[in-house]
Nucleic acid binder design. Structure first.
Length: 188
DNA sequence: TAGGCCATCTGGTCCT
DNA sequence: AGGACCAGATGGCCTA
């Protein structure tokens, strides 16, 4: 059962489609002084929801506690600000999607017609990083005492070993290694 | 038709 | 003060 049946949902009210019964400037909003204490209030079908954020409290209020309704000018001015804000948010999401696309292209996966979803992309990327980490640790196994299995837990030890190696041999190895990794990345 | 995924709108909060 | 960030709500599209 999906809770978003189109017949069930009331239409949304937007700035460009104001609800006729309410004067915009007198409308109550969650967290306004008039709504103090009603953190979970929800206006069904309207454009605002009560803040249901709880938990860490990081986003609760600012200095002074109670949230204040930001003071805007006329409804026309608010409308303009809203549209500008929407545009910025759209651009931000487009940039985020571009980053997702770049990540899709960076991780190896079975090519299909269907593109990876965002959650699939993140999961695959995580697994890919883990695999690479394992490979690197395996390759660095010689650095560890005999019998010790390379693992993420040994990362600090490996780093220490590597830094010691750098002190002895200089940075040339690191440069060569990075160059090699870079060339591999460009080839793939 | 239900459910997954996504784009967009929106308002609260944080940051500069 | 204004923009960035975030998360909830909503509606559209697609697929099994």
């Amino acid at each position: 059962m999906k809770s978003k049946g189109k017949a069930v949902k009331a239409s949304r009210r937007t700035w460009s489609d104001p609800e006729p019964d309410l004067e915009p400037d007198t409308e109550l909003e969650p967290g306004s002084s008039e709504q103090e204490g009603s953190e979970a209030s929800v206006r069904i079908g309207g454009s605002w929801r009560g803040s249901l954020r709880g938990g860490d409290g990081k986003r609760q209020g600012g200095v002074g506690g109670g949230r204040r309704r930001r003071q805007y000018g006329s409804s026309k001015e608010r409308s303009v600000r809203r549209l500008e804000s929407n545009e910025r948010e759209r651009q931000r999401m487009h940039k985020l999607n571009n980053a997702f696309q770049a990540l899709r292209e960076a991780i190896p996966h079975v090519k299909t017609d269907k593109k990876l979803s965002k959650i699939e992309t993140l999961t695959l990327a995580k697994n890919y990083i883990k695999s690479l980490t394992t490979i690197i640790l395996d390759m660095s196994g010689a650095c560890l005492p005999s019998g010790e299995v390379p693992s993420e837990a040994n990362a600090a030890k490996l780093l220490q070993c590597y830094q010691q190696h750098l002190e002895e041999d200089g940075e040339e190895d690191l440069t060569q290694y990075l160059t090699h990794v870079h060339s591999l990345g460009q080839r793939s």
